[in-house]
């Protein structure tokens, strides 16, 4: 009796007309941000050989926000980005992109396709390709093998690349090999590659490391101008830089959130003063 009921229940579930069968749901659906929150991270735990890199971490990021993550070396900032982008599997917890997409169920390429772009801590560009070529490969679009074989650059795509080139200020070196760029230029190119892919959420790991003061300033301008249309999460050590761009700052410490608020609130937080800002104050 019981198993029959069970199967009948399942069959009824399958026949429901107000839901879609899971295998029919397209993998690429637009992210649902109707609650105005684009990223939900709850109770995330990651450990490496017993060392807890993320420890019950909770973080919510609003749609269109520019959020700064700060924290000492080893606080788990890069690991957090690894979890969001599917590079590192977490031991427990949940990560949702908007209301409808479970990030933990997707791998790197799928997550990139969903609209999450990432800049690495160490600038990584395709050194054997030109600046232009780097942006071409990053353009939003289909990523399949067969399509790539016959792909031609359309006029709109060319315009889009030119637009990104002018945003990142690399018009003059567009035909240079990316390997020949300066460190700062590589950082920008990598940001440009993110822009070309037109992601909803950008994760930017230490963008101004190794930049001159002037370059830093321009990067700050660029990132602020991106907020609104995109959601941006920036990891940075440079406190001046963070102060110049951040509206909301989250402080990580030993794999969990220590404090969150405006820069002033955070700087006056007793815990934060103790463990982080206190060191160099």
């Amino acid at each position: 009796m019981n198993p029959i009921n069970h199967f009948a229940g399942q069959a009824r579930e399958l026949m429901r007309r107000d839901t879609t069968w899971p295998f029919l749901v397209t993998r690429r659906r637009p992210v649902d941000v109707s609650k105005n929150i684009i990223l939900y991270l709850e109770e995330l735990n990651v450990s490496f050989d017993g060392f807890k890199a993320l420890n019950n971490l909770n973080l919510y990021v609003n749609d269109g926000e520019l959020r700064c993550l700060i924290g000492a070396n080893g606080a788990g900032k890069t690991t957090l980005m690894d979890v969001i982008t599917g590079k590192t599997a977490c031991d427990s917890g949940s990560a949702w992109f908007g209301q409808n997409i479970d990030l933990l169920a997707h791998d790197e390429a799928e997550i990139a396709g969903l609209g999450i772009g990432r800049k690495f801590q160490k600038p990584t560009v395709f050194e054997a390709h030109t600046v232009f070529g780097n942006l071409e490969l990053s353009l939003k679009g289909y990523r399949g093998v067969w399509r790539a074989l016959t792909a031609r650059l359309s006029g709109t795509e060319r315009d889009r690349i030119e637009e990104v080139l002018s945003v990142i200020g690399l018009e003059d070196v567009r035909y240079q090999l990316a390997g020949a760029l300066s460190h700062g230029q590589k950082q920008w190119l990598e940001i440009g590659m993110l822009l070309a892919a037109e992601p909803r959420l950008l994760l930017v790991d230490e963008p101004v490391a190794g930049m001159t003061a002037e370059e830093t300033e321009r990067t700050a301008e660029l990132l602020t101008s991106l907020a609104g249309k995109h959601t941006v999460i920036v990891v940075e050590h440079d406190m001046e830089f963070v102060r110049s761009i951040a509206r909301t700052v989250t402080v990580l410490h030993q794999g969990s959130v220590l404090a969150e608020g405006t820069m002033d609130q955070v700087q006056n937080n007793r815990d934060v003063i103790e463990v982080y800002l206190g060191e160099d104050a």
């Binding site: 790197e108 990139a112 772009g117 990432r118 395709f126 990523r143």
Partner: peptide, 14 residues
């Protein structure tokens, strides 16, 4: 060639 030089970067581009 991108895969050869920076496979992780290529993957994170989708």
């Amino acid at each position: 060639v991108a895969v050869r030089d920076a496979e992780a970067r290529t993957r994170f581009l989708g």
